[in-house]
Nucleic acid binder design. Structure first.
Lengths: 221, 221, 221, 221
DNA sequence: AATGAATGAGCTTTCATTCAT
DNA sequence: CATGAATGAAAGCTCATTCAT
C-alpha cells in the first residue's frame, strides 16, 4: 500500500472561506433588513441560497454569525475611513481638521455607496448585550485614546488651545459623526445637507480647538 | 351577565389608568433587567403581581407595552432635565451655558439615582425597528429644532457667533451628552469623572459658540 | 380597595396533579410503544389529547417526564409486590419461601393485567444513563440489603445454611425474577409456563438455602 | 455473479472486509464511550480515520452498524468465555461447576482487561427495540438450551438432582452472571469482591444442583 | 374584570444520509 | 472508491396570545 494517492474529492481549498463570507454577507443583508432577533437562520440560508444545515457547517451559532457580521461592518467602516490617514500625525490645526474632514467625507461616500450600512448600527443595537457593547465601547476607547494623544501633541506644540481636556475632547470629536449618521438615518442625505453638516461640525471643532490668541495673531482660517 | 343598571359609583374610574401605569412600570423594571426580547409577558405580569391575561386587557401586544415603556423613559428623562428651565429663554452665552450645565447636572443626578436608566437605551435598542427609531429620531429632531431656535436668537442678539449653522450645532449640542452616557455605561461614573467631562464639554461648547468678541470688539449684546 | 374578592378563574385545585398524571400515563404508553428516544414530545401530547406546549407547563423537559414514568413504573411494581408482606419477618425457610412465592405470584398477576409493564424495562433501558442506572442500582441495592438482613437472621436462627454469603445470595435472589421477566418478554406467558418457572426457581432457592442437615435430621418439607 | 474479466490482481480482496471490521471496532469504541444515540456517524468515521461517506459504502445505516457492534460484542464475550470448554461435556457435578467457575473467572478477566465491555450493555440497551431484543433473547435461549441439555445429561447420569427443571434452571444459571455484572457496574470490582461473589454463586449452584446423595447414600454413577 | 391554562407557530440546532467530484 | 459538502427533516423547547371560567 504505497500511500494512497489522496483518495476522494479534493477539499477545494478556498471553499470554506468563501462560504463563510457568503453567509456573512447574506446575514448582513437580512439582519439589516429585519433586525437580528427577527431574523431566522432559515432566512439567512434562503438569502444565501443554501440549506439551513449548511449554515451550521460554517458557524456554530446564530450569535457567532452576528459577531462576524459586526466585524464585517467594522472592517467596512475602517476601510472607508482610511485610519492610516489619521495616523499621518498632523502638525497644525489645519492639518488636523483637514484629516477629520477627509475622514468624514469618506464616511459619507461610503454611506452613499452602501446605504444599508447605517442600519447596521440598529442591527448591532438589536443584539446588544454585555459582551457586544463591551466590544463596541472598546473600539471607541481605543480610537479616542489615539485621538487624545494627537490632541495632546497639538497642545504641546501650541496649535491647540491649552485648556481642553484631551480625553473628553477626543470622545466628543468622535461623537461628532453621530449627528451626521442620524441625519442619514432620517433620510436627509442630499450632498448639500451633508456638506452643510460637515462644514458646521468642522467649524465648531475648529473654534473649540484653535487657541484663542490665534484670533488676534492671525487670520482665523 | 346581568349586572347592567350600574348602580352606585362607577368602579374607580381611574383604575384602568393606574393599572396601565403599574404594568408599564413593571415592564420598565424587567425590560431593563433582562432586555426586551429576553423578557416574557409572564415576567411582566409576575412583577406587577397580576395574571398574564390581565396584561392583555390593557395592552394589545408586547410591542405596545414597549412603546409605553419608552414613553415612560422619555418622561423620566424630560422630567429630570426640567426642560422648562431650557425654555427660560437665555439672554447671554453665560445663561445658555449655565442652562446646559444645569441640565447635564440634573441628568447625572438622575443617572445616579436611577442607574438602570442608562440600560434603558439598550432595551430600546434591543427592540429597535423602523417605527421606533423614527420615534426616537422625531424626539431628537423636536428638541434640537427648539435648541436651534434659541441659537438663532443668540446669533441675532450677538451673543452667539454668527458663523454657526444653528440646526447642525443644535444637533451637535444634544450629541454632547453621548460621551457622558458612554462613560456611564463604561462604569466610569465617579463624581470627579462626571465633573471633568461636564466641564470639558461646556468649555468646548463655549469656545464654539461665543463670538470672538475681541476681534469684532463690539458689544456682545 | 377592600381586598379583592379573589378575582379571576379559581385555579381548580386538583387540576395540575391530574394533568401531570395524565401526561405521565400517556408518556408511559408511548414510551413503551416506541421507546424513549424514538418518541417525540408531540407524540406524548397527541396521546394525551393536549398541545405540545401544555406538556411543558407540567414538566420542564422530556427527561423529567421519563423520570416520572420510571417512578410510575416502580410504584406499580412495588404496589404489586406488596413489600410489606416481605417485611413480615419470616421465621422459617418455609415462611421465607412462601413469601417469595407470593411476591412472584403477584408479579405475574400484575404482568398479566398490565402486559406493557415488562416493556417498561426496555424503555428505561433505552434512556439509561449514569444517573438513571444509579437510581436503578440504588433500588436494587436497597432491597437486597434488606433481604440480606433476613437471610442473616435465618442463618442465626439455623433455618438457613450457614455457609452462604448473605449479600451475594440476596442479589442472586432478586435476580431470580429475571428469567421470569425474560420469559414474559419472549411471549411465553402461559399460566403453566409461569407456574413451572416459579416452582423451579423456588426449588432452587430452597435447595440453596436450606441447611443440609435438615435432610437427615427431619422431613424436608 | 460471473465476476467479470478482472484483469490484474484483485484489489485486495479482503480489503472490504477489513474496512468493515475497522468501522465496527471504531463504532464499538465510540458507542461505548458516548452511547449509541449520542454518537454521530461522523464520530465513528473520525475514529476510524475515514470519511463519513465511506461508512455508507460498507453499511446501509447507523442502525446496521449497531447490529454488527452487538455481534462484535457477543463474539468478544463468547471468545472470552471459551464456550468450547463448556462443550467439553462434564461428567460430574464437580466438572460442571469447575467449568462454570472457569467461565466466570474468564469473564472477570475479560472485564478487567476491557472494562468498557460492561458499558456495552448500556449501549445496546440505549438502542434496544423489538428486533434487537429478540436477537438478544434468541442468543440467551440458544445458550440456555444447550446448558439445559447438559443438565439433563447430569440428571440422567445421577450427578444432578432429579427434581430440577432443566430449562428453567439453565436460564437461572445464566442469570447468575447478572449480579456480578451489576457489581462491576457499581464499581465494586476488586479481586476480593469478585472472588467472594463467584464463590457464593457457585456454592448456591452446587447446593441447588447436587443430589442430596447423603439420602440415597450411593455414588451417583 | 381577572385569571391562568392551553396552545401552536416558530425558533435554533443536530445529524443521518446523499451525491458531485 | 473515497470523500466531505450539502441538506432538510425533525427534535426539544419557548412564549405571545386567546379564552373558558
Amino acid at each position: 500500500m504505497p500511500e494512497q494517492p489522496r483518495r476522494g474529492r479534493p477539499p477545494l481549498a478556498g471553499l470554506p472561506e468563501r462560504r463563510r463570507q457568503q453567509i456573512i454577507e447574506s446575514a448582513y443583508a437580512v439582519f439589516v433588513e429585519r433586525g437580528y432577533e427577527a431574523t431566522a437562520i432559515s432566512d439567512v440560508a434562503a438569502h444565501a441560497g443554501i440549506g439551513q444545515g449548511t449554515v451550521y457547517r460554517y458557524f456554530a451559532s446564530k450569535r457567532e454569525i452576528l459577531d462576524h457580521v459586526v466585524d464585517f461592518g467594522f472592517e467596512k467602516l475602517i476601510d472607508a475611513l482610511e485610519p492610516q490617514s489619521l495616523l499621518s500625525r498632523p502638525n497644525s490645526a489645519e492639518e488636523l481638521l483637514a484629516g477629520v474632514r477627509a475622514a468624514i467625507t469618506r464616511l459619507y461616500a461610503m454611506l452613499e455607496h452602501d446605504p444599508d450600512f447605517v442600519r447596521l448600527a440598529l442591527v448591532e443595537a438589536s443584539a446588544i448585550d454585555k459582551e457586544l457593547s463591551d466590544r463596541l465601547l472598546g473600539v471607541e476607547l481605543l480610537v479616542s485614546t489615539f485621538v487624545a494623544q494627537e490632541l495632546r501633541r497639538g497642545v504641546a506644540a501650541g496649535w491647540i488651545r491649552a485648556d481642553i481636556d484631551p480625553e473628553v475632547t477626543a470622545h466628543v470629536t468622535l461623537t461628532l459623526v453621530v449627528p451626521g449618521l442620524l441625519q442619514e438615518m432620517r433620510g436627509d442625505n442630499t450632498p448639500q445637507a451633508r456638506e452643510r453638516a460637515t462644514a458646521s461640525m468642522l467649524t465648531l471643532l475648529e473654534k473649540a480647538l484653535r487657541p484663542s490668541h490665534s484670533v488676534t495673531a492671525g487670520p482665523a482660517r
